[in-house]
Amino acid sequence: MENKEELAIFGGKPVRENKIFYGRQYIDQADVDAVAAVMTSDYITCGPKVKELEQHLCELTHAKYAVVVCNGTAALHLAALAAGFGEGDEVIVSSITFAASSN
C-alpha cells in the first residue's frame, strides 16, 4: 500500500497556511468616530443619520424613495410585501441562497 500524506482534517499539514477570506472591509478612524458619535448620541435608531442615509441612497440610485432596515432578512420581507406576495403565493428562489430568501 502506498504511503500518502495524511489529510489536514485528520491532523496532516494544510494545503495553505493563510486563510482565504470571502471579503475584506476597510474601516478607518473616521468610520470609527462616526459610529461612536451615533452610539453616544440621543439616537441609535430612527435618528437623523437614518434619514441622511436614505436621502444619499436616493441620490445614488435616482430613486424617489429609500427605506433602510436593520438587516437583509427585513429587506427581503419588505420587498416581498411591496411586490404584493401573500399567503398561498408560490415564490421560487435559488437553491443556493441564504435561508432568508425563502423564509
Results as ranks from 00 to 15, higher is better:
residue 37 A to R: 10
residue 86 G to T: 04
residue 85 F to Q: 06
residue 46 C to V: 06
residue 90 E to V: 15
residue 81 L to C: 12
residue 90 E to S: 15
residue 63 A to H: 08
residue 99 A to P: 07
residue 66 A to D: 02
residue 63 A to K: 07
residue 71 N to R: 04
residue 1 M to D: 15
residue 74 A to W: 02
residue 29 Q to W: 09
residue 88 G to K: 10
residue 50 V to Y: 01
residue 13 K to R: 13
residue 52 E to H: 04
residue 30 A to S: 15
residue 13 K to Q: 05
residue 99 A to C: 10
residue 99 A to E: 12
residue 38 V to P: 00
residue 64 K to V: 12
residue 101 S to W: 04
residue 79 A to K: 09
residue 13 K to A: 04
residue 40 T to W: 06
residue 59 E to W: 03
residue 6 E to Y: 03
residue 23 G to A: 15
residue 70 C to M: 10
residue 95 S to T: 11
residue 103 N to M: 13
residue 86 G to H: 05
residue 95 S to W: 09
residue 72 G to D: 01
residue 19 K to V: 05
residue 73 T to L: 03
residue 98 F to Y: 13
residue 2 E to V: 11
residue 1 M to I: 12
residue 15 V to C: 06
residue 53 L to C: 14
residue 59 E to G: 05
residue 99 A to G: 09
residue 58 C to A: 07
residue 64 K to Q: 15
residue 27 I to L: 08
residue 56 H to R: 10
residue 1 M to H: 14
residue 42 D to L: 14
residue 68 V to N: 13
residue 70 C to K: 14
residue 26 Y to C: 07
residue 96 I to C: 12
residue 73 T to A: 08
residue 58 C to F: 04
residue 6 E to M: 05
residue 86 G to F: 03
residue 16 R to T: 04
residue 24 R to H: 13
residue 45 T to D: 09
residue 97 T to S: 15
residue 12 G to K: 01
residue 12 G to C: 02
residue 73 T to G: 05
residue 71 N to I: 02
residue 18 N to D: 03
residue 11 G to L: 00
residue 99 A to W: 08
residue 43 Y to C: 12
residue 57 L to I: 13
residue 32 V to R: 05
residue 101 S to T: 10
residue 23 G to E: 06
residue 96 I to F: 13
residue 92 I to S: 12
residue 64 K to T: 13
residue 43 Y to I: 06
residue 69 V to E: 01
residue 66 A to I: 02
residue 72 G to P: 01
residue 96 I to N: 13
residue 54 E to Q: 06
residue 14 P to N: 07
residue 98 F to S: 14
residue 57 L to H: 00
residue 44 I to Q: 10
residue 16 R to P: 00
residue 33 D to C: 09
residue 98 F to W: 12
residue 46 C to N: 14
residue 37 A to P: 00
residue 13 K to G: 01
residue 19 K to Y: 06
residue 3 N to Q: 15
residue 20 I to S: 05
residue 35 V to Y: 12
residue 45 T to A: 12
residue 81 L to G: 09
residue 25 Q to Y: 13
residue 55 Q to L: 07
residue 7 L to N: 06
residue 83 A to V: 08
residue 82 A to K: 08
residue 31 D to M: 10
residue 50 V to M: 04
residue 30 A to M: 13
residue 38 V to D: 00
residue 18 N to I: 03
residue 46 C to A: 11
residue 86 G to K: 08
residue 82 A to F: 02
residue 37 A to K: 10
residue 17 E to T: 06
